[in-house]
């Protein structure tokens, strides 16, 4: 059995670990509320933009439309944009996103497609281990405290430039969708070319009175203006969802850690008290037997 002193030190160390995990949980809870608000606030813009995109795309999305909508006509090189967080200690948050991306990559390679990665966020860099030659770019996001639209736009501009340069044909975006503090769903969506099926579905929901709407300039120009913006908005939403998911995931993980530490302290305390009691008993037996011998 471990000595009394060793047990005491052990209990002390678990206690300070518990303090840290507890603090991290509280911080995550506070940040989660803010991240959730941010995600909520971003919704009206995205909804309105999507509605307009839907009605425009069906009217102006014929042949000769922008390649961002119609695609390059090829389906060979797939780019996986993987958005992760900058920090760990958030449960399985990052590994879930990376796993979803890896699965998609393997599926695409099995179909004979070329797969490239675009990493946004430090924790996505583990992909370099699995696909050392397929990393197209690794974007440093460490300067970003709160996801702003400018960050998303910078990524979108970079992607569009690479798309125009013919570096890839299809782009997918991987992030974690926020459902609740307990549930975050790793999700992959296609962002380039802008998927039409989704928009057709949207159009049924909002059959805008587009027939009489006047456009200035014409539909095609508005659409060409909106397409890059739509991609930036998609990325921005992913970043916001990711931020909320990260905090939610961290909160849950740290709550578990705090509880485990509590259990451990309880167990160690019992062990410590038993050892102390045993030591007292031995001492007493020694004194009594010493007295009897006299």
């Amino acid at each position: 059995m471990a000595s009394l002193k060793a047990l005491k030190i052990r209990i002390g160390s678990v206690k300070s670990t518990q303090k840290i995990t507890k603090a991290m949980k509280m911080v995550a809870a506070a940040k989660l509320r803010r991240a959730q608000d941010a995600a909520q606030n971003g919704r009206p813009y995205a909804e309105r933009l999507e509605r307009v995109m839907a009605s425009l795309a069906t009217r102006a999305g014929g042949p000769g439309a922008s390649p961002l909508l119609a695609g390059t006509g090829k389906d060979q090189v797939h780019l996986l944009v993987v958005a992760t967080s900058e920090r760990g200690l958030a449960g399985a948050f990052n590994s879930n996103i990376v796993r979803a991306a890896r699965r998609k990559a393997e599926e695409l390679s099995a179909q004979g497609k070329t797969v490239r990665f675009y990493i946004a966020g430090k924790k996505g860099r583990v992909l370099k281990r699995f696909f050392p030659t397929a990393i197209l770019a690794d974007r440093d996001m460490s300067a970003m405290k709160v996801a702003s639209f400018d960050d998303a736009k910078a990524i979108a501009d970079d992607l569009i430039a690479r798309f125009t340069a013919g570096e890839f044909d299809v782009a997918h975006l991987f992030f974690s969708k926020f459902q609740s503090a307990l549930a975050q769903v790793p999700t992959g969506i296609q962002i380039i070319p802008v998927p039409l099926a989704e928009q057709a579905a949207l159009k049924d929901v909002a059959p805008a009175a587009a027939a009489v709407t006047e456009y200035e300039p014409d539909e095609e120009s508005i659409l060409a203006d909106l397409l890059p913006r739509n991609i930036a908005v998609q990325i921005f939403r992913a970043l916001l969802e990711n931020a909320a998911s990260e905090q939610g995931s961290r909160m849950t993980a740290m709550d578990n850690a705090t509880r485990n530490a509590g259990d451990m302290i309880k167990r160690l305390s019992i062990q410590y008290n038993r050892a102390r009691q045993a030591a007292i008993t031995t001492e007493l037996v020694e004194i009594i037997s010493g007295a009897e011998a006299l």
């Binding site: 307009v52 587009a210 009489v212 006047e214 456009y215 200035e216 300039p217 508005i222």
Partner: peptide
């Protein structure tokens, strides 16, 4: 401030879209 010139919107304006 529309791309092709400023425009003012009052209530009951016809459906319109502009960058």
């Amino acid at each position: 401030p529309g791309t092709e010139g400023d425009f003012a919107v009052l209530e009951g304006h016809a459906p319109f879209m502009s960058t």
